[in-house]
Design a protein around this nucleic acid. Structure first.
Lengths: 337, 337
DNA sequence: CCGGCTCGTGTTATCGCTAACACTTGCGGC
DNA sequence: GCCGCAAGTGTTAGCGATAACACGAGCCGG
């Protein structure tokens, strides 16, 4: 209610203390609940705070405590569905724990761009850093990661030099591949992601080894760049290939492009061609036909990432790797019709 | 190269000064380029900085200068394509200008959630705030916006109480509608977004007034929630309606759902039904059929938003509203076949 | 009735930095 | 030959908060 009308500068602890007729320490104690304060005094102080519209200066607090209350996130391609959802999960968990989240995105992956991003965040005095950049260069960059601020990665490879939270890409690819094999296909083709992406490699390995385990022939791999456009290109070049009737595409966007290529070529899905994607973006259920895909719970990944980071910030050194289990969502693209 | 091996705590200005044999002020001058320093001294200081792996403490600097070098962004549904891209554009522009970006997202729109988010950012001592929440409650919440930190909004309504950068939704809707009318349809139906979203309202108004201007009948509006699911539901309930052969759907996801409903109902697009979406998400070109849609340049919006905010932070009070022009992308969903 | 406790409060130092000013030099102008 | 000014450097005083300790009042136990 009683707002200061002039809004001159921003009240400080001292201003509040003067108005309440106490020392600034008492005000500090009221605000932080540290130390005992007489009820009556507390009321006076709170009134003064209200009247001056006082807001603690987090910068000053950070300086003296050494804790900025801020987390840093380095994100590659933060406007994609997966990274954006993960970021959202992290931010949400961080906020609940009282942390602010500073983000710095990098447009092109690379050793130095990631190192620079981490450096920028350190200058901002973040208390912990999350790197969402499942890229081989990231893995290398993180080898040189600073030791004085806890750092965890999302979706790093098997042997990343830092703790990693990730959906089990290998297992997801296995499920997708076995699903297709289980439908009676002799083998399963694969449209992979870029070979400098760790997730692409893991999915490809999961696909390949599953085929091997089942004694199936391993067709050549086509590689895209995650975009629908590249999936479409892959479809154009692949459709008509002998023995091609089941494809595991490394993400949903590329699968959409692939579907489009099939449609244009007059190849019926799932009649003549069965397709499985990866991610389960919200639109996948409305593709034509609805896409069977492997669901990744990105928000959960974000949540767990923050949990791990917090444990590290508190000095914990527990487990270094946390796998989130993916789920196969079966829809018409591998249906019966 | 010469990193300190022990990594004890983090060197301060004083440590560097001691090592270089100068006062801490001289070190400060070297770092910031303020005031004259003898070349030889500068070399010694830089060597000391290198040797100690010194990094300026931005918190201390922020405390004394009153400038945190940080921007705050409040985002609603930050994992959607549009907001995420806008955020990306803002963050990029901010970074180039030397600002860090702190993000705080809100899951449900509402007066208090937005006010809270802004409050959190103010506590973080941000120098400027961007609100990406084109929601009616946001408009109301911003009326009570604090006056001591510059604030701009993305995608606010016509009469938002703060400066706004937005794509011209009205004009985009006009283009979409006129495109369909130009193809000879008697009228154009509309699947709208939620009525508490400003962009949904603007698009609907653009559609409605365009029909009026052309003397076309105004069909009832169906309302979705931006999701493909809701677009599908709209399609299910609408398909078969008398005189329905042209639809302007308020975003691409819903358009996808609508397409799906048409496909299931055996309605050929564009043969029996023409559809236009809005946004031009990267996948729209690969829908079946490829979707005619209105492109919004979200990254450009983000860039301009930062520019405006910076001018405000520098005390500027120039224009309060900036419209980015959308573009109609014609594809097969309104094609000839 | 005194020592030692807790409660409630104040005083002082400190975090790492920049702002403001003071102080030496050395040099040019008159 | 003295004044003034610029270059180069140092000293001091905060910024707004918390930490650490100090201190008086009241209470309890022995």
């Amino acid at each position: 209610m009683a707002r200061e009308t002039t809004e001159s500068k921003q009240a400080s602890l001292t201003d509040v203390a003067a108005l309440a007729g106490v020392s600034h320490m008492t005000v500090s104690r009221v605000i932080n609940g540290t130390g005992p304060v007489r009820a009556e005094t507390r009321v006076r102080v709170n009134a003064a705070i209200e009247q001056l519209d006082y807001r603690p200066n987090s910068v000053a607090r950070a300086l003296v405590t050494g804790r900025s209350g801020t987390l840093g996130v380095v994100a590659l391609e933060a406007n994609l569905y997966g990274p954006a959802s993960t970021l959202s999960g992290i931010e949400h968990a961080a906020r609940e724990a009282g942390y602010a989240t500073t983000i710095t995105s990098i447009s092109r992956p690379g050793r130095s761009s990631i190192t620079d991003a981490v450096e920028r965040l350190r200058r901002q005095a973040v208390e912990g850093i999350v790197v969402i950049a499942p890229h081989v260069t990231a893995a290398r960059a993180l080898e040189a990661a600073p030791s004085d601020v806890p750092l965890v990665a999302v979706g790093g490879g098997d042997k990343a030099p830092v703790p990693v939270i990730t959906v089990d890409q290998y297992d997801g690819a296995r499920r997708a591949t076995e699903h297709l094999l289980g439908l009676g296909h002799e083998t399963v083709w694969h449209v992979a992601g870029p070979e400098d992406w760790l997730e692409a490699l893991d999915r490809e390995r999961g696909w390949r080894e599953t085929l091997q385990r089942h004694g199936a022939r391993i067709p050549p791999v086509i590689r895209g760049d995650w975009s629908a456009r590249s999936g479409y290109a892959a479809g154009r070049s692949l459709v008509g290939e002998r023995g091609l009737d089941a494809v595991f595409v490394a993400n949903d966007q590329m699968a959409l492009g692939f579907l489009r290529a099939c449609t244009e070529a007059g190849v019926n899905v799932p009649g003549e061609m069965r397709i499985v994607g990866f991610d389960d973006v919200p639109e996948a259920a409305y593709y034509t036909p609805p896409l069977t895909t492997v669901r990744q719970d990105f928000v959960e990944v974000g949540r767990r990432t923050f949990d791990l980071l917090r444990r590290r910030m508190n000095g914990g050194e527990d487990r270094d790797r946390d796998l989130v289990v993916p789920e196969l969502i079966v829809r018409e693209s591998t249906g019966l019709s």
